[in-house]
Design a protein around this nucleic acid. Sequence first.
DNA 1: AAGCGGTCCTGTGTGC
DNA 2: TGCACACAGGACCGCT
Length: 275
Amino acid sequence: MPELPEVETIKRTLEARIKGLSVVSAEIFLPKLIRMPGLDEFKTLLTGRKFQGLDRRGKYLLLHLSQGLVMVIHLRMTGRLVYLPASCEVAPHTHLIINLDDGCQLRYSDIRRFGNVSLVPAADLNKLPGLCSLGREPFDLEFTRGYLLKQLHSRRVILKTLLLDQSFIAGLGNIYADEVLFRARIYPQQRSNALTQRQVARLFHAIRDVLSEGIKNRGTTLRDYVDGEGMAGNYQNLLKVHNRENQPCAICSTNIVRLRISGRSTYFCPYCQRM
DNA sequence: AAGCGGTCCTGTGTGC
DNA sequence: TGCACACAGGACCGCT
């Protein structure tokens, strides 16, 4: 599932391909994919616009078009956005095809149909639900140890749950949250207000280090994720705890344990991350 | 007010 | 071998 490192990798690979290209036409095969505006308006607005640059905010991909229009895409669980020659066979579950003026296409496919696409003027970005309520970017200067400490101590939430809260910090999902907690050596069910200064410091660095490594390794492909060129990531080979139930911890050889925290699988080392 | 659970959705894995 | 069902989870929404 695309989290910050995956969306960042898609952003980088796609930007190299589509920047400067214009939209010839768009075909929509799943109406509910388009959150706003209406389908006809979506096609009309998009046609003729040029891709001027790409951005990422949390797990959202922002494609900036000419005349101040922005296409906002959230891939959720199984969404894929791939640049391909028009002659390539269309993959199953392809819900949107954007024809480009170089003879290639930008295709959105999504097995579970959870993802969504919006097209809005840049000035209205802060009105988009979800996007407008995102918390700080982990690599922003404004994301500091002080901010983290203040947020953690102002609430009494299970830490894993808080790491997944996009209005607290933007971009962490289930995979990287587990890896971050392992790196920081913190028990996932620890209450946020009970963290020591030392633990908060470790957490702060773990968030940035794990996400950086994820990006460096072009994301994690457990099942569906590919980048803008259809390539799988490599970070799945470097995961320390996520999806590794009953396998030995690389540090202490204790078997990794799986827990359920607010409806999600959570993997951790019961020795390295003891309370 | 915070937090829980339902909802969306389909491929995969498991058990009988 | 084939069927039925639980499970996977990101974000939103409604309820407590």
